[in-house]
Design a binder for these strands. Sequence first.
DNA 1: ATCTGTGCAAAATGTTTGCACCACA
DNA 2: TGTGGTGCAAACATTTTGCACAGAT
Lengths: 321, 321
Amino acid sequence: MTTDEEVAEQLVLFSDYLKKNSLKMTRQREVIVESFLRTNGHLSVEELHRLVKEKDASVGFTTVFRTLKALTDCGLARETDLQDGRTRFEHVYHRPHHHHIVCVDCNRTIEFLSPELERLQEMIVAKYQFRTVRHQMQIFGVCPDCQNQRPSPQEVFDSDDVFARDALKIAMEAERSGVNFYLAAAEQISRPSGRATFLRIAEEEKKHLHDLEYEWLELLKKDKNILKAPVFLHFDYDALKKIFPTREEIKKRLEGDLDEEQALKLAMEMEVESYRFFREYAGKFNDTRGKAIFLKFAAEEEDHWRTIQKEYDRVMQRRVH
Amino acid sequence: MTTDEEVAEQLVLFSDYLKKNSLKMTRQREVIVESFLRTNGHLSVEELHRLVKEKDASVGFTTVFRTLKALTDCGLARETDLQDGRTRFEHVYHRPHHHHIVCVDCNRTIEFLSPELERLQEMIVAKYQFRTVRHQMQIFGVCPDCQNQRPSPQEVFDSDDVFARDALKIAMEAERSGVNFYLAAAEQISRPSGRATFLRIAEEEKKHLHDLEYEWLELLKKDKNILKAPVFLHFDYDALKKIFPTREEIKKRLEGDLDEEQALKLAMEMEVESYRFFREYAGKFNDTRGKAIFLKFAAEEEDHWRTIQKEYDRVMQRRVH
DNA sequence: ATCTGTGCAAAATGTTTGCACCACA
DNA sequence: TGTGGTGCAAACATTTTGCACAGAT
């Protein structure tokens, strides 16, 4: 499930790597790399060798072994340990760091990413003042199919689409919270220019939401089964509530003496928070569409922050005079 | 750093295991098991073989290998994978499940437990409906000493003391919060019998706190360096605030129209919460002193809950008449 | 033409087993 | 006295290397 373009991109990177190290591109390397890139999952040397031999029976085990080492060296592959007594290689290109859940019966492997888990892990290591080089979590268990004795074939999904799906879901939810916030806040503001600012931003967020919804539908159209793919990005949707106050929360916080200054301050805080939040999430996603979605989102929030700050300055200016 | 008693206890368990499986105790097995039990850390077969040979040069590698398998089988050892190309065996008896931080330079290994991390992990797996068999997290990095180029010998601590230390610290903090709560709540209650109940529980908690502080001092006396041992049980002290409201919080929640019924309800809620909390923590600690401390604590909280419930029933009874 | 790549076979590494002799219970 | 235990050596499984020949730039 890797597109031709992606394979081509990675082949270019591999060629560059070879040139840089005065190594040569050979027929064997080409077959091996191509086979690796076009196969999903976590291949052992032996498994890849078997695949390669289907295309060219003359290729030796050692060459596959050495080519995988080269791929690892140039950053296109990564060795992982799935505890089955052999080294397994997985794709790195456009794949974020992640952890594994492995079915001990059928060997099906699920990958996941949880920024919350990462944060917790970082906090723990920080206490010991270790400089982390790498870390991994592995969960071994029995998958639902094996629990029900009906092993079914593992479906293969385009991982970039999965990342995009998970990112879009979060971004849409955030966008909705944003719209809610600005509409609710606008209601509480009496001064026309201030209200107009909030309403304008609300409209902008609505537009963004529509864009995201469009992207979402396109994604579903492109890959009708994408919703069946296991969750990759684990996300605590309650965290959004901490960033974007709910309608009730807003009313409570702004209730009584309506204060435009306060509302603007709250909005700025919120935008900064959400900017930080989406930047952090983007950081977890190696070059993927998921990352692009989060970065775009972060940029929009930064933009809003500027707009609001201008309005805030104007209000304060006015107050001084 | 395993006491003679502990070694003896484990030897008994091993003997029982042998008997149950009609196996025999031999001179070699005795030496091997004893060496294993008396050595900390994560031993490979080869390392243990080396240690055993110091006591009895005639013991062969295979016997050490087979004895370690037997120890694993009977639940006194566990195989771990520290990614250094060999299987390593660690102690299980009286040691909770935990994860590892490994220094890639000097191989120093730190063990830690984070119930928060465990909870997160469980939540993630739940989404996939996997039945978890086991899981592990490994963090590889450079320890502070290796970062500073001054490798120092790894100090060895009595792990049970470390667990007790971490448990005591949390229990004391909880106890303090409890005392605070009951004193603050008592202040808000005008009816003498209600106030008396709260003050009595506050006194009880103070006594418990003293007991814990005594235990703490005894621990420090017993092992003067115990505070230097790395944290094992990671704990978010803010979590306590969610269980035991702070003095300000209490005043806020009970302010204005002082309602004894409300105060009692709040207290019951708190006791149930903290009972659950300490039970959960106890569950993470395999038979250790840490577990005992948490269980004792949970029992006390349950006791308080009963006391308060009686008082609550009395108040409600009175109201009906 | 030169230098790297390849495939084979062999070594290295770590784990596991077969077997003849040994020693608990 | 008989079953299981031990040590040795050999088998296994996987990864890694040496080397003579092949092939890419």
